Computed example of a mutant assay.
Amino acid sequence: MSSSYQPPPGWSPPGAQFRTRGNGVRTVVGTLIGLVVTPIGIGLAANGALDTREWVIFGDAGARWGSTSQMVGGALLLFLVATLAGYSPFGTVIAGLVWGIIPGIAHFTFPDDTWRFVEDLPRLSGEMHQALHAWLMNGFALITGMLLIGSGIAATMRRR
């Protein structure tokens, strides 16, 4: 006789019907969401920060709410990408690499070419070019990338 308890035949633990086995679709969807939402959040936060700098310098307090709402909106979108790690850690890590680590390291490696690269981005206004360059120059791209990668790694470690 075995010393361990054997469950009855056909028994499964509660909640087993909700488990998913296909992680491929989850990874693709999470990666696409992360790659699309991250640059939007970065753009909103960077543009809001640039506008904040201008209203502080020029004393135009009337523009304060627009820039504050842009920064909060960008932060919420980046928060969404970080929480996406619970669904697909790979998507959050890829978004952190593509939109944070790689541009941050490229700026530190080739600082003179960063402005030219940002200027070549299509469909952006001059203010947005300036905001993205300031985002890169101040190191926030690298910080954002590290935080997104960290949330992806933490979610992976938590699952194990």
Rank of each mutant, 00 (worst) to 15 (best):
G139L: 07
W11D: 00
V37S: 06
I40W: 09
F58R: 12
P13A: 13
H129S: 07
S151R: 08
W135S: 01
I105T: 15
A49G: 08
I149W: 00
A75D: 12
A75L: 15
S151P: 00
T109F: 00
L147E: 06
G48I: 10
V81W: 08
I57K: 12
T52M: 13
T31Y: 08
F108L: 15
S69H: 09
I105W: 11
G15M: 08
G34H: 05
G145Y: 10
P9I: 10
G104Q: 06
S2H: 15
R64F: 15
W135D: 11
G66W: 13
S12L: 06
P122R: 12
L35P: 10
L80S: 08
S12E: 06
T83Q: 11
R160N: 11
L148A: 08
T68Y: 02
T114V: 01
I153F: 14
T144S: 14
F117S: 13
A131K: 04
G62T: 13
A49F: 07
D120E: 10
G86D: 00
D60G: 02
I149E: 04
R123T: 06
A85K: 04
A85D: 00
A45K: 00
A49R: 09
Q17L: 10
G74S: 04
Q17R: 10
G152N: 14
G59S: 06
R160M: 12
M137F: 14
S67H: 07
R123L: 09
R64T: 14
W65Q: 11
T20Q: 01
G34C: 09
G150L: 12
I105N: 07
G41W: 02
G104P: 01
M146Q: 04
L80M: 12
D112W: 13
L132V: 01
T68G: 08
G30E: 14
F90Y: 00
L32H: 02
F79Y: 11
S151K: 04
A46T: 11
W135N: 09
L35E: 12
A82S: 15
T109V: 08
V56W: 03
L147C: 09
A141L: 08
V25Y: 00
Y5M: 02
H107I: 03
W11R: 01
D51L: 09
G152T: 10
V98W: 04
G126K: 09
V81E: 12
P122I: 02
L50V: 07
L76F: 04
A49H: 09
N23L: 09
G91W: 05
G145S: 07
T156G: 13
T92R: 07
L84D: 02
G100C: 06
D120I: 00
H107E: 07
L76D: 02
G126E: 15
T156I: 03
A85M: 04
L124M: 10
V93L: 09
F79S: 05
G74R: 08
M157T: 09
S69P: 08
L80K: 02
N138R: 11
T20C: 04
D112P: 02
G43K: 05
F90T: 12
G150A: 15
T114C: 01
G62N: 14
G59L: 03
T83I: 08
A85G: 15
T156A: 09
